[in-house]
């Protein structure tokens, strides 16, 4: 694949992610997307709190971040999917995210077949050595009709 093709594909994937209404609503920022890997950050937002006692962000918002990041990783993979959908996603919550801190998810396609991408993702807050959550998922690879 030529450099121009690659740049165009990455641009398309970036625009696609930025055009997702719910990702916008959660204030997600895509900071890296290349070769089946993606990084997306999400600032702390009081609207997303799941436990008012502690101010900890709801697991559901972390799921949305992980799912979006995993989808972005699939779109940037050289398999060149024109679209993707989540088949299944498992999230392990290791510890509560520290209130007030930004959460950053990193996702990577670790295996891709003709029709399925297997993705791993990790979410961290200000302390990158202790993940907040990890996820594994299977995603569809929708190809352009030929």
């Amino acid at each position: 694949m030529s450099d121009t093709q690659k740049t165009r594909r990455d641009l398309l994937a970036r625009q696609f992610i930025e055009a997702i209404p719910h990702a916008q609503e959660l204030g997600m920022q895509l900071t890296a997307i290349e070769d089946g890997k993606a990084v997306i950050g999400m600032d702390y937002d009081p609207r997303l709190v799941g436990d008012p006692e502690t101010g900890v962000i709801h697991g559901g918002a972390v799921s949305a971040l992980m799912d979006t990041c995993a989808g972005a990783a699939v779109m940037s993979h050289p398999a060149a999917a024109v679209a993707t959908a989540t088949l299944d996603l498992r999230i392990d919550y290791m510890r509560p995210a520290t209130p007030g801190e930004r959460i950053t998810a990193t996702a990577e396609c670790y295996h891709v077949t003709r029709s399925v991408a297997f993705v791993r993702a990790t979410a961290v807050d200000g302390d990158p050595d202790r993940p907040v959550a990890t996820a594994t998922g299977a995603f569809t690879i929708e190809r352009a009709k030929s």
Binding site: L65, T86, L89
Partner: peptide, 18 residues
């Protein structure tokens, strides 16, 4: 605001999970 794929359109997988 719950949409994940504006082309279909479909609800965001993260919204479903949440």
């Amino acid at each position: 605001k719950l949409i994940g794929n504006p082309m279909l359109p479909a609800i965001h997988g993260g919204v479903t999970a949440a």
